[in-house]
Amino acid sequence: MSEYEKITSVKNAPDKEYYMPGHRTCAGCGPALSYRLVAKAAGPNTIFIGPTGCMYVANTSYSCGPWAVPWIHAQITNGGAVASGIETAYKTMIRKGKYKGEQPNVVVMAGDGGSVDIGLQALSAMLYRGHKVLFICYDNESYANTGIQTSPTTPYGAWTTFTPAGPVIPEGKKLFPKDNPKLVAHGHPALKYVATASIGYPVDLMNKVRKGLSMEGPAYLQIHATCPKGWQFPADQTIKMAKLAVQTGMYQLYEYENGEYKLSLNIKERKPVYEYMKLQGRFSHLKPEHFEKTQAFIDGRCAEVGISVPVTTES
């Protein structure tokens, strides 16, 4: 791992933008904010790979784009593979004297579908081969660009157009979500760094980006990017929702390095998941037993990474 400049506070965060104004993302879009923060942290010597998804279609509609750095489209299936090709090309061209310059940051910005589902194979192979690439999953918990359909990170009980609630299926989504950070963390020997982040904690997010880029090998960062359209809450609540996810344990912030989990926040109390879920239209059809099931599932997820504080029970 090489040195990197840590950002100490919002006030001291760098002014320079590399994700400029002008993109067709939702007002209050969580993933758009994550892109801005990632680009800001990564700086000018960066190449972005954008698999198909909201952050492709919305950002490049039409025949344009907001990045001040190079960017290329990839299929939703192959972000990891395209990034591997770019990283390898630069490594080879520099060695053979065909390119005069430094190895650039190579960063994939893929949605949850392009990371955990249809894009999982390419991600895993990239991590296995040890390419120096930072693979970022902006997790908005659905296939959002196609109008909100279920993905493997969609929470249990969430309404999507493929998991609508009805008399036959009262909870809507019956399946519990995959845990991609843990899935990739155990079993890829060349993987150097795994972390989760949230747009509600921007300084922590930007530092994790820089830390990931400083590794001499692949890194995986999953960012919780709240989605007002898909989860059905007002656009100005995007940040509050992100913080509440962490405060209820619905999203856990940690790093996984050298075989150990390191929590990013000192959580003193854990609010019940109901406090978070009741604010989102996608859970409005759920009954008490569904919330209980979610609470039990989240309790387990928290325990796995060492969040030991119990849930605050309501009075």
């Binding site: 290329i72 770019i86 390119y99 390419a122």
Partner: peptide, 26 residues
């Protein structure tokens, strides 16, 4: 031969790797 051989995870990935490499100028 001075080249990098990337062991792609499948044929779809093979074509994706060279897509990226060619776009980068290789």
């Amino acid at each position: 031969l001075d080249a990098e051989l990337v062991y792609a995870e499948g044929e779809h990935a093979q074509l994706s790797v060279v897509y990226g490499a060619s776009a980068a100028g290789a």
